[in-house]
Structures are given as structure tokens and as C-alpha cells.
Design a binder for these strands. Structure first.
Lengths: 255, 255
DNA sequence: CGCCAAATTGACCGAGCTCAAAACGAGTGG
DNA sequence: CCACTCGTTTTGAGCTCGGTCAATTTGGCG
């Protein structure tokens, strides 16, 4: 929305050295010569359309992926057919590591919006990492960060009230958006209420009610997928399980 | 129980090449020369007592650990002070990888029973892996398997009924025990009901009731921490969300 | 303007949490 | 061998949070 979305071939060709995610993505902390070697194996793909899949469950591990912009969800199909959301992926966050254990993907990566994706053939990545200690360490760290996000997700699901989960979700999303230089206080959610519900282990109605509650309490302002964090401090309090103080500034009594 | 538990110094000194976990642990799939190089950096520690900690939250990443026998839990402290159980670790399953992302441990590893532990200094491990492609791949795979277990845990917690979680837990534990050559049908649980509850995101009373229910239905026999799987097929059905058939063989009507 | 998907709101109900008490088992000491 | 204690586990009873079903409302788009 903010920037023109014309099809910019030049931008498409830009390498890691000019990518705004350089400090967050695999290239972080390796020197110029090493960067060149990494760049040689990275493929940049043309835009991925909303709903398109990078890989499917059962696919052999060919490559790992990083979005330059846009957003993805990784999902697994419950044997009941219901889809469960494993993670959301923002730009700079690696996708495809779920195949490390068995060599085949356990989930599918679906684009939530149109997106630009870098693809790194896995064999080449491992081979290059073998030669470059810096990249090797970087790779382990990126994997670790992905595990950390999974852990945060887990913390969100265990023994937490619905409202707590929702606050935690908004809080965490804001923090990650700020990391990639976007506002964490004025967010246009790339995912539906149903996606959020399936991520948080709640019914979609509960998510909707939670949003409404936060709005009534003056913590956020919601308009469809646009969410503004009005009171980050209070949001953080709620995320950590504190009940809202009995009386609040915004008009809740007046319905 | 089966083998004498005298303090066996010789066994303590035995290297990876004679370890029964060789096929599951890091050494799997690397050749003899490589194995020797790995062995050089592995430290074997004397027994760890029940309740002892391998590392604490916030500790810098020094080493990763593998139990040769015994069992561990990794826990994180809820800010509320309540401990949340992140994972249980059986022999051959790596511990300490939670520090990969930030360089510091996010959780603590606590021994559930007396245990024998191998300690692998992390820096050395990475350095050796740098030189040995086989070990490098092995390391990534072991990390991946650990992520897979986390994923299974997550699947257990999201949108699953209490009874389903419990069945899934027993089923998964049995499968992992069978992998290390122990019976999956006759298990002495190393953890308390409370530990299980904190792992499954349930109240301990709910876990206890779930066990009783499974016993009443003739699926398992429970006696304290001893659990026998009487009907593995039915257990698997329950684990996958199927309700028990209306009429069961065992006497439930007769209380 | 009308259509369809997404989101909100309402009403009801049941799984599972909480509080409470009893039963059990493993030590410990007389 | 029994009595006593302490921790773990089981069982019971009631209530609440959040799921389910259903009816609107909203918003995007042809």
C-alpha cells in the first residue's frame, strides 16, 4: 500500500548484499567474500501469489526459503482434516526447516499475501556452510531462533487463558514486525481470524470476542484486519497473565 | 532392575563405539575414524542424581548433553512461578539445544531419575562438525529430530481433548521407548502425574482421571507409575481422536 | 446493486479446572 | 511388626471458561 507495487525487475535481481533483511537473514555476520559465495547459490523467485504453496507435506527437502516481503503460514493437516497452524513467517524468517529431522517436509508453507521469496538449495547451503565457519554458525543460530519461536508458540498454548493468548499473540507479532523495521503499533494483519484461532488453539469466535474485549478496554483499536496498539504497556501486562484493573479509562459500562 | 546396578567404573569409561545408543545418538552414520575424533571431545560424567540440574535458564551454552540411561525433563518458569514442562528426554535424545538461538539456555534440565550423562562441549562439537561432513549432517538431523518432537508436543496441545492428549502421550512415549530397545507396552513412568499434567497442559486431577478412564475401558492397567498397555490398537485409535466404541469388553457398568 | 466470505454478536452447554477430602505407598522410628 | 508421617494419587462436587450452533452485520468485488 505505502509503496507502489509495480513489477520491479531490478529489485527482483538485487542480491543479499543490498537486501534490507541482510542483518536478520542468513547473511548476517559474515564477511564480504563469504557473502558473495552465499549469494551464488541463492535463487530469487518471482512473486508468489496468495494461497500458493512453497512446499507440501511429504515433499523431500530441496531448499529452505526466506520471504523478502509478504507473509506465510505453515500448516499441518489434522488426520481429522482440520488444518492446524504451526507458525506464521514474516520476512527474514526461515521456512522449510521442519524437514531437517526426516528429510521430508511435515507441513506445507502457504502464502498469506503476495510475496517475494528467496530459495536456498539445501544441499548447497550445507556444502557452503561446511567451508565457511561464519555461515555454519549463522545457520545454527537461525535454526535456533526458529526453535525459539516454536517455543514461544508453545508457551502461548499451555495453561493460558484465551485473552492471554490473544494479547501474547499481538504483543509477539508487534515485536517481530519492529525487528524488520515495520511499526509494531499499527499493524495490518496478513492472516484471518480463523488463522489466528487455529494458531492459538481457540475457536475463531473466541478470537473475535477477544479482539472486541481489548478494544472495549481501550488497549487496541480494531477495524477488520487493521489493529492499532493504543496501550502497549497494558497489552504486555495482559500478555503476562495480569487481569485488567477493575476500572478502565475507556467506556465499557456504556454499551 | 534387569542388570546389576553396582557402580561400574569400566562401563563409565566405555566410549561411543560400545554404547548401545550408537545408532540413535550423534555417532550414527559416521565412520570409525570420524567416530574416534568425536569420542575425543565427549566427556562422560559420573551419575547425576534425581532432581539435579544439567543447566539452568540463563546459563551460557557450554555443552549439549545426552543421557545414556535415566530420564530428564526440561522446564521453564512461568513468570507466575508455575513451572511449565517443555519436554521429556529419554536416553539418546539431545538436551541443551534450546540455547542455539540466543547463546543462553531458556530452560533448565532436571533429572527425573538417577542418570548417566554424556557431555559434549558445544564449541568443540561445531569445530569437529566443520571438518567432518558426516557429523555435520548428523548434527543437523539430530537437531531436526528434536524439533520434530517439539512439533509432536505442539500437536498434542492444540485443539485436542484431555483424553486424547493422554492417549497420545502414552502412545508416543511407548514408541520412543521401543526405539531404545525397551518395552513400549510395560512402562514404569519416570515422571509424576503432575509432571505429565504440566507437559500436557492439563490439571493433574484430569490426568489421573484420564488414566482411570483408560483402565476402566480395558486399554491400560495402571498401578502407580507402572503402566501396561493392554490394547495398543485401541490406544492408537483414542490418540487419533476416535471416541471409544459405546460398549467395551471390560466391566465399566460395574463400579 | 447484489453476492459471498469474513467477522461480530448472542445464547447455551459441557469439558475440564478448582477446591476439598480421602486413599494409598514409601519411609522412618519405636 | 506396627504406628505415624509425608508426598503422591485418586475420587468427588460444583462452577466457569470457552466451544458450538446460529443469526446478523460488515466489507470487498464483480
Amino acid at each position: 500500500m505505502a509503496s507502489p507495487t509495480v513489477f520491479d525487475l531490478a529489485q527482483l535481481r538485487r542480491g543479499c548484499s543490498q537486501c534490507s533483511l541482510q542483518q536478520l537473514c542468513l547473511p548476517a555476520g559474515i564477511d564480504a567474500a563469504e557473502l558473495a559465495q552465499l549469494e551464488r547459490i541463492v535463487k530469487r523467485r518471482r512473486p508468489v501469489a496468495r494461497g500458493e504453496r512453497l512446499f507440501r507435506a511429504g515433499d523431500a527437502l530441496q531448499a529452505v526459503y526466506v520471504a523478502r516481503d509478504g507473509a506465510f503460514k505453515t500448516i499441518t493437516g489434522n488426520e481429522a482434516g482440520e488444518e492446524q497452524i504451526v507458525a506464521f513467517h514474516l520476512p527474514g524468517e526461515l521456512m522449510g526447516l521442519d524437514a531437517l529431522g526426516s528429510g521430508a517436509h511435515r507441513c506445507e508453507a502457504v502464502a498469506l499475501t503476495t510475496a517475494q521469496v528467496c530459495e536456498v538449495p539445501f544441499e548447497s547451503l550445507v556444502a557452503v556452510a561446511q567451508q565457511l565457519p561464519g555461515l555454519q554458525q549463522r545457520l545454527l543460530r537461525v535454526i535456533g531462533q526458529s526453535v525459539d519461536r516454536d517455543r514461544d508458540h508453545l508457551d502461548m498454548l499451555v495453561r493460558r487463558q484465551a485473552n492471554e493468548r490473544i494479547a501474547l499473540f499481538l504483543h509477539g507479532l508487534g515485536a517481530r514486525l519492529r525487528l524488520i523495521g515495520r511499526s509494531g503499533e499499527d499493524v495490518t494483519l496478513p492472516m484471518s481470524r480463523e488463522d489466528i484461532a487455529r494458531f492459538l488453539g481457540l475457536a475463531l469466535e473466541t478470537v473475535s470476542r477477544g479482539f472486541t474485549r481489548l478494544q472495549d478496554d481501550g488497549v487496541i483499536a480494531v477495524s477488520g484486519r487493521r489493529v492499532q496498539i493504543l496501550d502497549p504497556v497494558e497489552l504486555e501486562r495482559l500478555a503476562h497473565g495480569q487481569e485488567p484493573p477493575p476500572q478502565k479509562q475507556a467506556g465499557r459500562a456504556a454499551r
